[in-house]
Simulated assay, not measured.
Amino acid sequence: MRNEDHAREDGPGGRTDEATDTFVTHRNLLFTVAYEMLGSAADAEDVLQEAWLKWVGVDLAAVRERRAYLVRITTRLALTRLRTLARRKESYVGPWLPEPLLTAPDVAEDVELADSVSMAMLLVLETLLPTERAVFVLREVFGLDYDEIAEAVDKTPAAVRQIAHRARAHVAARRPRGTVSPAQTQGALDAFRKAVETGDLQGLFDLIAPDVVLLTDGGGVVRAALEPVVGAEAVVAVLARIAAVATLRPVRINGCPALVVDIGGEPDSVIAIRLDDGLVTGLYAVRNPEKLSRIGEEASLRR
């Protein structure tokens, strides 16, 4: 082995500094791609580990555009895992919700990114077929051209255009109505928190839509409603029980204002909201402890 080759090796498997530097440079982007496709940080991390193992075996001299190549590897691995997750979700106990991520303020400053990783949007993306989801994320969130996406999903550019059109229409019909600014979400959440903490039931009724839906994800590990809780009266009753034993702490989850529910000084759940026409139409409460393991550290999401 030549001395210069030896100098470029770093760690097990002969990983080079150049390969490592490139991967680290794009890691946050790759994590965001995988997370938006999977809705699970744990699975996204597994995908990145697999992507890294593939990347260190690549001849870098033969790679024309490294960012695109890494996105392609990550997308293909995420698609494979997404199909596995679909089978896993079929046996999931109760409603399945995305894994909430504590995010830094800079994520909220990128309005398009914050919207794309919001709990409400991730649930809309769950209704897409795997390839539709990949195409939508790569095109609408990351702005890849159709040729790049075609390589990532093993389709022709013409097919990708059709899939993108279909996915956009599907998402548009299901995403929150109108644009909701971070300030509007924060204002609604502040009022919601105050009403819950003070037991102002009328205040809660004024904030939530008559047909509001509460989804609680306990994963069969902790107690949670196994079916959606529908209607203002039923939802307010649940919130009143929470207020009696918990404190609510404001945070930013997935780029949006949200609440951590603390019981006995420990995080018990995370609550995110969906706003439509100024009213809370959706409440998403994640209680599954496996999905709360990262709630104490900020996740770096990038486009």
Rank of each mutant, 00 (worst) to 15 (best):
R177S: 14
V153K: 05
V180T: 15
A209R: 05
I149R: 02
L113M: 10
P100E: 00
P98L: 05
P182N: 11
R177P: 07
L128T: 00
H170I: 04
V107A: 04
R193Y: 02
E112Q: 15
R133V: 04
A158L: 13
T198F: 05
L101V: 06
V135N: 06
D110W: 07
D106C: 07
V196R: 14
S181E: 05
G187I: 02
L125K: 05
P130A: 05
A86P: 07
A167W: 06
F192Q: 05
E132M: 03
R166W: 08
E151L: 12
A209I: 01
A86M: 14
D115C: 04
P130F: 01
L189C: 05
E99A: 09
V196Y: 02
Q186F: 03
R87F: 01
V196K: 11
D200I: 02
L102D: 03
Q202K: 14
D110I: 01
P95D: 05
A188V: 07
V93G: 00
A134S: 02
T198I: 01
T103N: 00
P100W: 00
R88D: 13
E132N: 03
Q184I: 03
D206C: 01
D115W: 10
D145L: 15
I163V: 15
Q202D: 13
R174N: 08
P176D: 13
Q202P: 01
L125H: 07
L128H: 00
V93N: 10
S118A: 06
H165S: 12
D110Q: 02
L204H: 12
A120I: 01
S181D: 11
G178F: 10
Y146V: 15
P100L: 00
I208C: 15
E126T: 04
E90I: 03
A120V: 11
P182I: 07
E197H: 10
V160S: 08
K155V: 10
A104E: 09
V137T: 07
R139E: 08
I163K: 02
R88S: 14
R161W: 02
R193M: 09
D106I: 03
H170W: 12
L201I: 09
M119Q: 05
T103C: 03
A183R: 15
S116G: 09
L207K: 08
V135Y: 06
V160L: 07
A120R: 07
F136L: 08
V153L: 11
L125W: 13
A150C: 11
A158N: 10
E126R: 06
A164I: 13
V180E: 14
G94W: 12
A152N: 10
A159Q: 10
D206Q: 12
L138Q: 13
A134L: 06
H165F: 10
A164Q: 12
E197S: 08
I163Q: 04
S181G: 11
Y146C: 08
W96R: 05
G94C: 13
G199S: 05
F205I: 00
A164L: 06
L189K: 06
L128M: 03
P98N: 06
K155F: 15
A114T: 14
Y92G: 01
P176M: 03
V93I: 14
P176S: 13
R193P: 04
S116M: 02
P176W: 00
V180Q: 04
A164N: 14
A173T: 04
V137S: 02
R133A: 00
G187R: 12
D106A: 08
A150F: 14
R168Q: 10
G199F: 02
T185W: 13
D206G: 01
K89P: 00
G143H: 10
P176R: 00
F205Y: 08
L101N: 13
L144G: 05
A86E: 13
